[in-house]
Amino acid sequence: MSATDIQDPNRRDFLYVATGMAAVVGAGAVAWPFIDQMRPDASTLALASVEVDVSSLTPGTSLVVKWRGKPVVVRNRTEQEMKDGEAVNLAQLKDPLARNANLPADAPATDANRTMPGKEAWMVMVQVCTHLGCIPLGQEGEFGGWFCPCHGSVYDTAGRVRGGPAPENMSVPVFQFISDTKIRIG
């Protein structure tokens, strides 16, 4: 049999490609556990929800709980704070989205959308600046909401960014009232 009789692609080409493919898939399968182990582990994920007793919170007070290693503020807002939050013209907002994990991603950042229906007094929010992750101080800054001491981002009484380098409103985590005095976050 002369060389010209061998079909192109021939059996040897097929074997090369098949071997190469098997090696690539095999390398990927071996590499995956090494990458996978770096993701949050089961014990970290087990802390993914916390329950908070909010019966002690009178209007104008707040508490901070640690959730997923980050501080979450629960604030019982005053009438004035809610009024200030509602009075904001949405067109003035730097970030027009509600950033509320309980609502669709494109929900507008109205004061109501930052809270729960029927529980508008309650602000539940990850108290982490959306700029570089610092912890803003509560009830400070020109809008009476939050103020980040690191790079000067200012948030209003609904936790929406109103000034400074932060790009987004502070995020509202998944939460629900499991009773009148208890909130489950996560």
Binding site: M38, R39, P40, T44, R68, G69, L132, C134
Partner: peptide
């Protein structure tokens, strides 16, 4: 926190990469 926060700026996969680096949702 700040330096791993850089990775969250990457569109789409940023948060996933940040969690991969941290092994959680925050530095711990």
């Amino acid at each position: 926190t700040v330096i791993t926060g850089f990775f969250s700026a990457i569109p789409l996969v940023g948060d996933w990469i940040q969690q991969l680096l941290l092994g959680g949702f925050a530095v711990d």
